[in-house]
């Protein structure tokens, strides 16, 4: 009894400490507890939010994978095998990271189609669409770059999982850096066909883990800020 009282007292003191500095109660009251929304909203309205949840799953599992993954043409496959077989629950985290893009892309497609067919992009929500469409494109690019990283059949075994599409990235990188090689040209022997250079690997890895997620976070920030400002659309 005394222990419980002390625990409550301790939690209350922590709560008070934060309240004194940040006045969180008022923020929660205004934005959550006293907030009213139109009655009978469609469940499909939640698809944008669910895409964010999928993104967060990807970010969480991706951070875990980044601790063990080696972005090198010769080591990538082994590092993924290590994650799958040697790390406790590594197989689960890796598989979740590999499977969630299917749901993420489906949710964003469904969200965009709903907005397109209902004309929700009309004034004053033009920039909602611009940021959302850019996020869809970035999602496709991040999924595309992610297909390369396990190196399951691409670098080692000479079979490309996305075919010559890697050429798109490497071609863009070529004039900038000059050392990246076209994925279709590296190695002429049968077993080497489709091999990606180590530079290309690091380039794709950096895009996948830093470049694109950073851009996505900025765009998502704008997107949610604008949605918060204008509110959800009026029913047709």
């Amino acid at each position: 009894m005394i222990k419980a009282y002390k625990k409550d007292n301790f939690l209350q003191r922590i709560r008070n400490w934060f309240e004194e500095r940040y006045q969180l109660n008022e923020v929660i009251e205004r934005n959550v507890k006293r907030k009213l929304v139109p009655r009978g909203l469609s469940w499909f309205v939640c698809m944008g939010g669910l895409s964010l949840v999928a993104f967060m799953i990807q970010a969480g599992t991706g951070i875990f994978l980044a601790f063990y993954y080696v972005p090198s043409a010769s080591e990538a496959f082994n590092s993924v095998q290590y994650i799958r077989h040697a790390i406790p629950y590594g197989w689960l985290i890796q598989k979740v990271h590999a499977v969630t893009p299917h749901f993420m892309v489906s949710l964003i497609f469904a969200h965009m189609l709903r907005i397109l067919f209902k004309g929700i992009y009309k004034k004053p929500r033009e920039l909602h669409w611009v940021s959302g469409a850019s996020l869809l494109i970035l999602t496709l690019i991040i999924c595309y770059t992610g297909t390369y990283l396990p190196a399951n059949s691409l670098s080692y075994w000479g079979v490309s999982s996305v075919g010559g599409e890697a050429a798109m990235l490497t071609m863009v990188a070529n004039p900038i850096v000059g050392t990246y090689q076209d994925v279709r040209l590296v190695g002429t022997a049968e077993g080497m066909r489709g091999m990606v250079s180590s530079h290309g690997f690091v380039f794709i890895y950096t895009l996948h883990t830093i470049g694109i997620p950073l851009m996505m976070c900025i765009l998502m920030g704008f997107h949610f800020l604008m949605v918060r400002k204008t509110g959800i659309s009026e029913p047709l």
Binding site: P101, V105, F109, L140, Y144, S161, G163, E165
Partner: peptide
């Protein structure tokens, strides 16, 4: 494996 994921 030469076939990309459905969205690509």
């Amino acid at each position: 494996q030469t076939r990309p994921p459905w969205y690509l």
